[in-house]
Design a protein around this nucleic acid. Sequence first.
RNA 1: UCCUCUGUAGCUCAAUCGGUAGAGCGAGUGGCUGUUAACCACUAGGUUGGGGGUUCAAGUCCCUCCGGGGGAGCCA
Length: 431
Amino acid sequence: MKDARIEDIGKYEGLEVTLKGWLYNLRSKGKLHFLQVRDGSGIIQAVMFKPNFDPEFFKEVKKLPQESSIIVTGKVKKDKRSALGYELDVTGLEIIQKSDQYPIQPKEHSVEFLLPRRHLWIRSRMQWAILRIRAEIIRAIRDYLDDSGFLLVDTPIFTPAACEGTTTLFETQYDSHHKAYLTQSGQLYNEATIMAFGKTYCFGPTFRAEKSKTRRHLREFWMVEPEMAYAHLEDVIRYSEGMIMAIVERVLDRKKVELEILERDVSKLEAIQTPFPRMSYQDAVKILHEKGVDFKDGGDFGSEDETILSSMNHSPLVVHRFPSAIKAFYMEPDPEDDTYCLSVDFLVPEGYGEVIGGGERMSDPDLLLQRVREHNLPEDAFQWYIDLRRYGSVPHGGFGLGIERTVAWMCGIEHIRETIAFPRMLYKIYP
RNA sequence: UCCUCUGUAGCUCAAUCGGUAGAGCGAGUGGCUGUUAACCACUAGGUUGGGGGUUCAAGUCCCUCCGGGGGAGCCA
């Protein structure tokens, strides 16, 4: 008898296998029990026929609560009536534990009810599908970068000072002499590692202590941040585009079952193609004004502006050369007009907003020092960063992609809180 | 901090003009050989978020506090 996983149950057609899992749902019809069994890799229907079992035991199974842990043995049969294509003709069933009455039913629940039960909620079909797509997206990103010659170099979570000074940071007491702040970005460190390795990326959690309470914000979220030496804005855009395409293609190719569970309109994803449409910040402002949007030139786009711009195309929209005033201090000025900088945002369709932000970094030490002072940043803390421009400075750039927003977009779900196993949100930290 | 919606059974929701609190799911008991959120019958389940007010009468109207959702601000 073979231990099998539901994921590749097709390989065992006609054979008797053992599945170790949990009872997802149970329907009973007189002499038949239909058990929906999940094992983490999928859900299969297991059928018990009364004459094959001890009558007392058969009765006991009918009363098994949802999520009871069970080990099921049976013969794998092809069956057109099953969504999976196969079902299990049960020959043996071992009850490992009878669950207590399980709070989450296979039906609609409110977020208020589900969020405090996130540790159980992740067992549900849709959550299972989302988190599997997330894992595939992460694999696609790492494969893409590894295959393109980027080296993974991890950057610290504890940082001595604000990466960019302005945003709200989570403060911790690091030791008796120092406070430390949870990182908002590994980028500044990436700028050091590229000078050692050429092309690098960091991949990890980042923290923002803003009081944002929207469907696009989490307090703890994951970012992948590639950075390249000897690179210009055009290289940044090219790799960003390549990475998004790699993600889209991989998910469409390997996550069909999950997309179907989520009822994702895949035609929206299939329509994405390179090159992505591009426009400068100034052109974007013109378009907003033509559409009658009350937008102040020089300001940052609000979520509604982003939605208007990004829904003009199937593919993500590349907006470049934002005003220096609304971007980070380290952005390289546009040689054509230094009120703008060589920055870029990727706005994805369907209202998911900015998924990538990046640009070319400043390479001149004097100008960088000037910017640090203009922004009232602690000069001492940035000494090492300025050093990078003193010892063999080169044009360089990179970008950051937010994992959760990307997952939400791929899955077509409303809120990014479902794209991570245990979301950290304002006023919510349980479980 | 502001705007807006919302709070009724374990869960998801209903309750007309202010007139005795209702259904489905879940739970319990029984039935059924192909169910797909199975179905059928019966049973239990309520301080309508808390406090105050108006009224003969409040789930419903008013005030207030608390909780929750969405958004704005904020957010490379």
